[in-house]
Amino acid sequence: MTSSTFETVAGIISETCDIPREKITPQSHVINDLGVDSLDFLDVAFAIDKAFGIKMPLEQWTQEVNAGKVSSDRYFVLSGLCANIDSLVAAKAA
């Protein structure tokens, strides 16, 4: 996770969901800690997709979490989310 990715994502979540920026840390779980609901997360996803020029595979992530294959922490804790964004950006550039 790069610090600039975290800063961008934290800024998006703060602005989109009206959450004080200082409450958002790399350890924050977007849903469990920050209380972002699924509708607000659509706005967050849209802003992230646009900011980074990517398409986060939300359907795949949700299926994996619902099937118990991975913990939701992997995709919805900020550090994990940002690491995945970095990977998607790198894959796009490759």
Partner: peptide, 8 residues
Amino acid sequence: HEGSGYAV
């Protein structure tokens, strides 16, 4: 924008 499972 056509995202994963949503569109705007």
